[in-house]
Amino acid sequence: MNIELLNLLSKNARTSEEDLATMLGISAEEVRSEIKDMEKKGYICGYKAVIDWDKLDDTSVSAIVDLNVVPKAGFGFEDVADKIASFAQVEAVYLMSGVYDLTVIVKGKTLQDVARFVARELAPMETVTSTSTHFVMRRYKELDVKLINADSDGRGQLFV
């Protein structure tokens, strides 16, 4: 496992193997085999683009849904978390500390879509005792990438 390589990929997964190799002072062949190895071991689980959907007049909505769950004997939260994670509408599922047990990020085409999903699929689950849904109004930062005021950092006023 190569933590530095993971750090670089987490910043930009599209950096070429040659450039990664140069930055890390290893060969491109080593980069390729390290990546393959980390994919195989499940350290790297996928590669995705960070998209500012708001800029595309995309009307889809996201919500954060907090759930209280009665853990099943012998299964803990895994069982229900697995069931929830299987829905295509669900982007993320986390086990949380604090007032709620699970936090689920749900994406839908419309507000009604998401509301319906929560009401029909999540809330009625046998082990779910309560839900609290928060709709996302605007995204300012996504996966480490600032989506607002990202262009200028105020440098370049002075020649050094």
Partner: peptide, 26 residues
């Protein structure tokens, strides 16, 4: 005066400039 100022100003007016000129940490 530093001759670079003029150069800097030209760069500042182009909107798609890729600069490697700044000597200041990002």
């Amino acid at each position: 005066p530093s001759g670079i100022r003029k150069f800097f100003d030209i760069a500042a007016e182009m909107d798609d400039v890729i600069s490697l000129s700044i000597g200041e940490p990002d």
